[in-house]
Amino acid sequence: MSGPDGDRRPGTRVRGSVVPEAEFRSYYGRPIIKEPVWTWEVPWYFFAGGLAGASASLGLVARLAGNDRLARSAFTVSGAGVTAGVPLLVSDLGRPERFPYMLRMFKVTSPLSVGSWILAAMGPAAAGAAVADRLGIFPRLGRAAEAVAGLLGPALATYTGTLVADTAVPVWHEAGRELPFVFAGSAAASAGAAALLLTPPADAGPARRLVVTGALLELGAAQAMERRLGDLGEPYHQGPAGRLARLAKACTAGGAGLVALGGRRRRAVTAAGAALVLAGSACERWAVYKAGFQSARDPRYIVEPQRARMAEREREQLKR
Protein backbone atom coordinates (compact mmCIF):
# COMPACT_ATOMS: atom_id res chain seq x y z
CA MET A 1 0.00 0.00 0.00
CA SER A 2 1.39 3.35 -0.96
CA GLY A 3 -0.58 5.48 1.48
CA PRO A 4 1.18 7.54 4.10
CA ASP A 5 1.61 5.92 7.45
CA GLY A 6 0.52 8.77 9.64
CA ASP A 7 3.83 8.68 11.41
CA ARG A 8 6.29 10.84 9.66
CA ARG A 9 5.86 12.86 6.54
CA PRO A 10 8.67 14.55 4.72
CA GLY A 11 6.54 17.66 4.24
CA THR A 12 6.08 18.28 7.93
CA ARG A 13 9.59 19.48 8.52
CA VAL A 14 9.87 23.14 9.38
CA ARG A 15 11.69 24.81 6.53
CA GLY A 16 15.06 26.13 7.51
CA SER A 17 14.93 24.38 10.86
CA VAL A 18 18.17 22.88 12.03
CA VAL A 19 16.38 20.58 14.43
CA PRO A 20 16.43 17.07 13.00
CA GLU A 21 13.16 15.27 12.45
CA ALA A 22 13.55 13.14 15.54
CA GLU A 23 10.32 11.77 17.00
CA PHE A 24 7.81 14.26 15.71
CA ARG A 25 4.62 12.61 14.50
CA SER A 26 1.51 14.16 13.05
CA TYR A 27 -1.65 13.41 11.08
CA TYR A 28 -0.49 13.91 7.47
CA GLY A 29 1.32 17.07 8.60
CA ARG A 30 -2.04 18.79 9.04
CA PRO A 31 -2.48 21.68 11.47
CA ILE A 32 -3.85 20.79 14.93
CA ILE A 33 -5.33 24.21 15.72
CA LYS A 34 -7.21 26.49 13.34
CA GLU A 35 -5.62 29.54 11.80
CA PRO A 36 -7.33 32.78 12.85
CA VAL A 37 -10.13 33.89 10.51
CA TRP A 38 -9.23 37.55 11.03
CA THR A 39 -8.39 39.70 8.01
CA TRP A 40 -6.29 42.79 7.20
CA GLU A 41 -8.51 45.07 9.31
CA VAL A 42 -7.20 43.53 12.53
CA PRO A 43 -3.50 44.51 12.34
CA TRP A 44 -4.48 47.97 11.11
CA TYR A 45 -6.85 48.25 14.06
CA PHE A 46 -4.00 47.28 16.40
CA PHE A 47 -1.95 50.09 14.85
CA ALA A 48 -4.76 52.66 14.89
CA GLY A 49 -5.78 51.77 18.46
CA GLY A 50 -2.20 51.96 19.69
CA LEU A 51 -1.63 55.27 17.96
CA ALA A 52 -4.89 56.69 19.34
CA GLY A 53 -4.28 55.40 22.87
CA ALA A 54 -0.72 56.64 23.26
CA SER A 55 -1.59 59.94 21.56
CA ALA A 56 -4.36 60.59 24.08
CA SER A 57 -1.89 60.12 26.94
CA LEU A 58 0.61 62.37 25.20
CA GLY A 59 -2.12 65.00 24.77
CA LEU A 60 -3.20 64.82 28.40
CA VAL A 61 0.31 65.19 29.79
CA ALA A 62 1.03 67.97 27.28
CA ARG A 63 -2.07 69.81 28.53
CA LEU A 64 -1.02 69.40 32.17
CA ALA A 65 2.46 70.66 31.26
CA GLY A 66 0.94 73.72 29.57
CA ASN A 67 2.06 72.74 26.06
CA ASP A 68 -1.25 73.43 24.30
CA ARG A 69 0.07 73.17 20.75
CA LEU A 70 1.41 69.67 21.34
CA ALA A 71 -1.83 68.77 23.15
CA ARG A 72 -3.82 69.86 20.12
CA SER A 73 -1.73 67.74 17.71
CA ALA A 74 -1.88 64.71 19.97
CA PHE A 75 -5.65 64.86 20.51
CA THR A 76 -6.22 65.36 16.79
CA VAL A 77 -4.25 62.18 16.08
CA SER A 78 -6.04 60.35 18.89
CA GLY A 79 -9.47 61.36 17.62
CA ALA A 80 -8.54 60.34 14.08
CA GLY A 81 -7.14 57.02 15.34
CA VAL A 82 -10.31 55.91 17.13
CA THR A 83 -12.45 57.16 14.25
CA ALA A 84 -10.48 54.93 11.88
CA GLY A 85 -10.31 52.06 14.35
CA VAL A 86 -14.00 51.45 14.94
CA PRO A 87 -14.97 50.78 11.29
CA LEU A 88 -11.96 48.48 10.98
CA LEU A 89 -13.19 46.42 13.94
CA VAL A 90 -16.77 46.34 12.70
CA SER A 91 -15.92 45.28 9.16
CA ASP A 92 -13.82 42.35 10.40
CA LEU A 93 -16.89 40.76 11.99
CA GLY A 94 -18.65 37.93 10.18
CA ARG A 95 -21.90 39.73 11.02
CA PRO A 96 -21.00 43.45 11.13
CA GLU A 97 -24.60 44.48 11.85
CA ARG A 98 -24.31 42.65 15.18
CA PHE A 99 -21.44 44.86 16.37
CA PRO A 100 -23.50 46.17 19.33
CA TYR A 101 -23.60 42.59 20.70
CA MET A 102 -19.99 43.22 21.76
CA LEU A 103 -21.50 45.17 24.66
CA ARG A 104 -24.09 42.53 25.57
CA MET A 105 -22.03 41.59 28.58
CA PHE A 106 -18.74 42.31 30.33
CA LYS A 107 -16.41 39.30 30.50
CA VAL A 108 -12.96 39.51 32.09
CA THR A 109 -12.12 36.15 30.55
CA SER A 110 -12.51 37.71 27.10
CA PRO A 111 -9.94 40.39 26.26
CA LEU A 112 -12.14 41.24 23.28
CA SER A 113 -15.04 42.01 25.62
CA VAL A 114 -12.85 44.10 27.93
CA GLY A 115 -11.33 45.85 24.92
CA SER A 116 -14.74 46.64 23.47
CA TRP A 117 -15.70 48.36 26.71
CA ILE A 118 -12.41 50.26 26.81
CA LEU A 119 -13.03 51.40 23.24
CA ALA A 120 -16.64 52.27 24.02
CA ALA A 121 -15.47 54.66 26.74
CA MET A 122 -12.22 55.85 25.20
CA GLY A 123 -13.45 56.28 21.60
CA PRO A 124 -16.12 58.93 22.18
CA ALA A 125 -13.88 60.67 24.74
CA ALA A 126 -10.94 60.90 22.32
CA ALA A 127 -13.09 62.00 19.38
CA GLY A 128 -14.98 64.47 21.58
CA ALA A 129 -11.78 65.91 23.02
CA ALA A 130 -10.39 66.51 19.52
CA VAL A 131 -13.57 68.18 18.29
CA ALA A 132 -13.94 70.35 21.42
CA ASP A 133 -10.34 71.51 21.18
CA ARG A 134 -10.40 72.20 17.44
CA LEU A 135 -13.70 74.04 17.47
CA GLY A 136 -13.15 75.70 20.82
CA ILE A 137 -16.51 74.52 22.14
CA PHE A 138 -17.51 73.01 25.50
CA PRO A 139 -14.10 73.70 27.09
CA ARG A 140 -14.91 72.04 30.42
CA LEU A 141 -16.46 68.96 28.88
CA GLY A 142 -13.51 68.85 26.49
CA ARG A 143 -11.03 68.81 29.37
CA ALA A 144 -12.96 66.02 31.08
CA ALA A 145 -12.95 64.03 27.85
CA GLU A 146 -9.21 64.60 27.52
CA ALA A 147 -8.67 63.15 31.01
CA VAL A 148 -10.79 60.07 30.28
CA ALA A 149 -9.10 59.47 26.92
CA GLY A 150 -5.61 60.08 28.30
CA LEU A 151 -6.04 57.69 31.21
CA LEU A 152 -7.75 54.92 29.19
CA GLY A 153 -5.39 55.37 26.24
CA PRO A 154 -2.62 53.09 27.55
CA ALA A 155 -5.19 50.32 28.11
CA LEU A 156 -6.44 50.68 24.54
CA ALA A 157 -2.86 50.43 23.29
CA THR A 158 -1.92 47.31 25.26
CA TYR A 159 -5.04 45.14 25.58
CA THR A 160 -4.62 44.01 21.98
CA GLY A 161 -1.38 42.26 22.97
CA THR A 162 -3.31 40.27 25.55
CA LEU A 163 -6.07 39.65 23.03
CA VAL A 164 -3.81 37.71 20.68
CA ALA A 165 -1.94 36.09 23.57
CA ASP A 166 -5.18 34.63 24.93
CA THR A 167 -5.40 32.05 22.13
CA ALA A 168 -3.97 28.60 21.48
CA VAL A 169 -1.56 30.01 18.87
CA PRO A 170 1.90 29.16 20.28
CA VAL A 171 3.83 32.19 18.98
CA TRP A 172 1.20 34.47 20.54
CA HIS A 173 0.29 32.64 23.72
CA GLU A 174 3.84 31.91 24.87
CA ALA A 175 4.78 35.58 24.33
CA GLY A 176 1.90 36.82 26.49
CA ARG A 177 4.20 38.54 28.98
CA GLU A 178 6.08 40.52 26.33
CA LEU A 179 3.45 41.27 23.67
CA PRO A 180 1.71 44.10 25.59
CA PHE A 181 5.13 45.75 26.01
CA VAL A 182 5.91 45.38 22.30
CA PHE A 183 2.57 47.02 21.54
CA ALA A 184 3.08 49.72 24.22
CA GLY A 185 6.48 50.66 22.79
CA SER A 186 5.21 50.60 19.24
CA ALA A 187 2.21 52.75 20.22
CA ALA A 188 4.37 55.29 22.08
CA ALA A 189 6.80 55.61 19.18
CA SER A 190 4.00 56.06 16.65
CA ALA A 191 2.20 58.64 18.81
CA GLY A 192 5.40 60.65 19.20
CA ALA A 193 6.07 60.45 15.47
CA ALA A 194 2.57 61.51 14.45
CA ALA A 195 2.60 64.46 16.88
CA LEU A 196 6.03 65.49 15.57
CA LEU A 197 4.66 65.85 12.05
CA LEU A 198 1.86 68.17 13.25
CA THR A 199 3.64 70.34 15.83
CA PRO A 200 6.01 73.30 15.41
CA PRO A 201 9.56 72.14 16.33
CA ALA A 202 9.81 74.45 19.34
CA ASP A 203 6.88 72.71 21.02
CA ALA A 204 7.66 69.18 19.84
CA GLY A 205 10.50 68.31 22.25
CA PRO A 206 8.47 65.77 24.29
CA ALA A 207 7.24 64.12 21.08
CA ARG A 208 10.82 63.67 19.86
CA ARG A 209 11.85 62.13 23.17
CA LEU A 210 8.77 59.87 23.14
CA VAL A 211 9.76 58.57 19.71
CA VAL A 212 13.13 57.50 21.08
CA THR A 213 11.90 55.94 24.35
CA GLY A 214 9.01 54.24 22.53
CA ALA A 215 11.32 52.82 19.89
CA LEU A 216 13.74 51.53 22.53
CA LEU A 217 10.85 49.89 24.43
CA GLU A 218 9.48 48.33 21.24
CA LEU A 219 12.83 46.94 20.11
CA GLY A 220 13.78 45.73 23.58
CA ALA A 221 10.45 44.03 24.20
CA ALA A 222 10.53 42.36 20.77
CA GLN A 223 14.01 41.07 21.59
CA ALA A 224 12.83 39.72 24.95
CA MET A 225 9.84 38.12 23.24
CA GLU A 226 11.98 36.28 20.72
CA ARG A 227 14.33 35.13 23.45
CA ARG A 228 11.47 33.67 25.47
CA LEU A 229 9.91 32.00 22.43
CA GLY A 230 13.10 30.19 21.40
CA ASP A 231 12.26 27.68 18.65
CA LEU A 232 8.59 28.71 18.77
CA GLY A 233 9.72 32.14 17.55
CA GLU A 234 10.80 30.74 14.15
CA PRO A 235 7.93 32.53 12.34
CA TYR A 236 9.66 35.82 13.16
CA HIS A 237 12.58 34.70 11.02
CA GLN A 238 10.73 33.02 8.17
CA GLY A 239 8.28 33.91 5.42
CA PRO A 240 6.11 37.04 5.47
CA ALA A 241 6.31 37.49 9.26
CA GLY A 242 10.10 37.30 9.10
CA ARG A 243 10.29 39.95 6.39
CA LEU A 244 7.87 42.22 8.27
CA ALA A 245 9.74 41.78 11.55
CA ARG A 246 13.04 42.74 9.92
CA LEU A 247 11.40 45.71 8.20
CA ALA A 248 9.80 46.81 11.50
CA LYS A 249 13.14 46.74 13.31
CA ALA A 250 14.95 48.60 10.54
CA CYS A 251 12.27 51.30 10.20
CA THR A 252 11.87 51.81 13.94
CA ALA A 253 15.58 51.92 14.74
CA GLY A 254 16.44 53.99 11.67
CA GLY A 255 13.52 56.37 12.15
CA ALA A 256 14.24 56.94 15.84
CA GLY A 257 17.89 57.57 14.96
CA LEU A 258 16.92 60.18 12.37
CA VAL A 259 14.57 61.89 14.83
CA ALA A 260 17.33 62.07 17.44
CA LEU A 261 19.77 63.35 14.82
CA GLY A 262 17.39 65.86 13.27
CA GLY A 263 16.25 67.33 16.59
CA ARG A 264 14.41 70.63 16.33
CA ARG A 265 16.65 72.23 13.73
CA ARG A 266 16.92 69.81 10.78
CA ARG A 267 13.21 69.59 10.15
CA ALA A 268 13.33 67.45 7.02
CA VAL A 269 15.49 64.81 8.73
CA THR A 270 13.19 64.73 11.75
CA ALA A 271 10.09 64.44 9.56
CA ALA A 272 11.61 61.62 7.52
CA GLY A 273 12.48 59.84 10.77
CA ALA A 274 8.93 60.27 12.08
CA ALA A 275 7.48 58.78 8.88
CA LEU A 276 9.84 55.80 9.18
CA VAL A 277 8.85 55.23 12.82
CA LEU A 278 5.16 55.21 11.85
CA ALA A 279 5.90 52.65 9.14
CA GLY A 280 7.92 50.58 11.63
CA SER A 281 5.06 50.59 14.12
CA ALA A 282 2.59 49.36 11.47
CA CYS A 283 5.05 46.67 10.32
CA GLU A 284 5.49 45.48 13.92
CA ARG A 285 1.73 44.78 14.27
CA TRP A 286 1.67 43.12 10.86
CA ALA A 287 4.66 40.95 11.81
CA VAL A 288 2.94 39.76 15.00
CA TYR A 289 -0.30 39.16 13.10
CA LYS A 290 1.33 37.16 10.30
CA ALA A 291 3.51 35.18 12.74
CA GLY A 292 0.32 33.86 14.35
CA PHE A 293 -0.87 32.33 11.10
CA GLN A 294 2.49 30.71 10.40
CA SER A 295 2.60 29.37 13.94
CA ALA A 296 -0.93 27.90 13.80
CA ARG A 297 -0.28 26.16 10.49
CA ASP A 298 2.54 23.90 11.72
CA PRO A 299 1.59 21.04 14.09
CA ARG A 300 5.22 20.84 15.23
CA TYR A 301 4.78 24.03 17.28
CA ILE A 302 1.90 22.36 19.14
CA VAL A 303 3.23 18.85 19.59
CA GLU A 304 6.84 19.47 20.54
CA PRO A 305 6.33 21.89 23.47
CA GLN A 306 3.45 19.77 24.79
CA ARG A 307 5.61 16.63 24.59
CA ALA A 308 8.42 18.48 26.38
CA ARG A 309 5.97 19.55 29.09
CA MET A 310 4.77 15.98 29.55
CA ALA A 311 8.34 14.69 29.77
CA GLU A 312 9.12 17.37 32.36
CA ARG A 313 6.09 16.34 34.44
CA GLU A 314 7.15 12.72 34.27
CA ARG A 315 10.63 13.61 35.51
CA GLU A 316 9.10 15.56 38.41
CA GLN A 317 6.94 12.59 39.35
CA LEU A 318 9.89 10.22 39.26
CA LYS A 319 11.82 12.49 41.62
CA ARG A 320 9.08 12.26 44.21
Binding site: V61, A157, P180, A184, A188
Partner: peptide, 13 residues
Protein backbone atom coordinates in the same frame (compact mmCIF):
# COMPACT_ATOMS: atom_id res chain seq x y z
CA UNK B 1 1.41 42.05 31.76
CA UNK B 2 -1.10 44.29 29.96
CA UNK B 3 -1.56 46.44 33.08
CA UNK B 4 2.20 46.74 33.60
CA UNK B 5 2.72 47.63 29.96
CA UNK B 6 -0.01 50.28 30.14
CA UNK B 7 1.68 51.78 33.20
CA UNK B 8 5.01 51.72 31.40
CA UNK B 9 3.47 53.53 28.43
CA UNK B 10 2.07 56.26 30.66
CA UNK B 11 5.43 56.59 32.40
CA UNK B 12 7.23 56.82 29.04
CA UNK B 13 4.93 59.67 28.04
Amino acid sequence: AAALAAGTLLAAV
